[in-house]
Simulated assay, not measured.
Amino acid sequence: MANPSDERYLTTAEVARRLGVKDTTVYAYASRGMLRSHRLPGRRGSFFRQDEVDEFVAQGRDARQASGAVERIRTELTLLDDDLLYYRGHNVGELALTVSFEAVAGLLWTGELEKTRQFPRYDSLVDIVRTARAGLPPETGTVDAMKVAVAVLGAVDPLRFDLSTPAVVRVGQKLIGVLVDAMPGGETDDARLITQRLAGKLGGRPVDIGLLNIALVLLADHDLAVSTVAARVAASARAHPYAVVSAGLGAVDGRYHGVQSTLAYRFLSDAMDNPLRAIAERQRAGGLPGFGHRIYQAHDPRADVLLGLLRGHPDAADVMATVDAVIIVADSFPNVDLALAALMHAYDLRPDAGEAIFALARTAGWLAHAIEEYREPGLRFRPLGVYTGDRPER
């Protein structure tokens, strides 16, 4: 409930006069999340904070009509600042070196850094998912199998529409745990941490669990990446958490997002034979996978952490020699996709193992954003289309 003593509020009619529109238009802006309405104690009708109305006016009529949606998504989760990355005020590079992925997921979901957090096992759900996976063709990719698993887990959860924070946290722990435990590979019945349960299921040799934990922490969230926006749009429609993760997984499948580590993996494979030729071929095809970033200007802090550790790790000596060779020639900085590809080569993992690591890690972030979005007005993502087709005859 808004407190009228704290802010100056305007009635719907006052906002309409200020904007030069009808009352119904103000209600439409509110339904789309472009303005936030409040209820005041002892007064009837909707009220709007004057400072928010002033900001809305400052955006300009054309900008409002062109976007039609929420111009700013306020989030307390992730800060990208000066080529550094923070989760809820914690430097992510430091978190990756000091706490478990489970603890970081809990930090994103609840704001509390519970270092002893563990994700329970759900053996009956694992059996259900494995039965569903058994019907898929052998060549099915890991992320495609995860999509099926998420849909199945949602279908068998009668309480999936409980959107409270504790319920979403339970779903997050269940989803990540079952997705890992249902993967084919070495059984780890006595392992408790996600890294221990995942390390031997990515192909090749079991991954060093310390390096795997660092990769999961570094990838858990990255502000409003495209898959996160997709997840928030689903949450704004009050889709249940399983559907939110499904939306995120759908966007991850795009060639410009989650599959970049696979492209970087193949690039490193070629570069091990001939670095200059591999670089030249990729440049001719349109660009080097694993280098540069739309957000970072000079370096990717996630790549700095993971590549720095791989550079001194005996398991990664061969691949890091290739990585350092291509970095010298690339005329750009390496990003986390190249670091993930290097980790994959160090342990002879499947070419799509990086996509699986990315999707598992980012599931924590998608659900954290869903928790935030469930607190916002529903259906606030409603852009206005600019029609460019044929006009009907009158």
Score class of each variant (00 low, 15 high):
Arg8Thr: 15
Ala13Leu: 13
Val15Leu: 06
Ala16His: 09
Leu19Thr: 09
Asp23Glu: 12
Asp23Lys: 13
Tyr29Asp: 02
Arg39Gly: 13
Leu40Ser: 04
Ser46Gln: 13
Val53Ile: 07
Ala58Val: 08
Asp62Glu: 15
Arg64Asn: 08
Gln65His: 12
Gly68Gln: 11
Arg74His: 14
Leu77Cys: 13
Leu80Thr: 09
Asp83Phe: 01
Tyr86Lys: 06
Phe101Met: 06
Trp109Tyr: 14
Glu112Ala: 13
Thr116Tyr: 07
Gln118Asp: 14
Ile128His: 04
Met146Leu: 12
Ala149Lys: 00
Leu153Gln: 03
Ala155Asp: 12
Pro184Val: 11
Gly185Ile: 07
Asp189Lys: 11
Asp190Thr: 12
Asp190Ala: 15
Arg192Asn: 13
Arg192Gly: 09
Leu198Glu: 02
Leu202Ser: 03
Gly203Tyr: 11
Gly204Asn: 12
Val207Gly: 08
Asp208Pro: 12
Leu211Gly: 05
Leu211Ala: 04
Leu216Arg: 01
Leu218Val: 04
Thr228Arg: 02
Arg232Gln: 05
Val233Trp: 01
Val233Lys: 00
Ser236Tyr: 06
Ala237Val: 14
Val244Tyr: 01
Val245His: 02
Ala251Thr: 10
Gly254Asp: 08
Arg255Glu: 09
Val259Trp: 04
Ser261Gln: 09
Tyr265Arg: 09
Ala271Trp: 00
Pro275Asp: 03
Leu276Val: 12
Gln283Asn: 15
Pro289Ala: 00
Gly290Ile: 00
Tyr296Thr: 07
Ala298Tyr: 14
Ala303Tyr: 01
Arg311Ile: 06
His313Glu: 06
His313Gly: 10
Ile328His: 08
Pro334Val: 01
Ala341Glu: 04
His345Pro: 05
Asp348His: 11
Ile357Thr: 03
Ile357Val: 11
Leu360Ala: 07
Ala361Tyr: 06
Arg362Ser: 00
Thr363Tyr: 04
Tyr374Arg: 10
Tyr374Gln: 02
Leu384Ser: 14
Leu384Gly: 09
Gly389Lys: 09
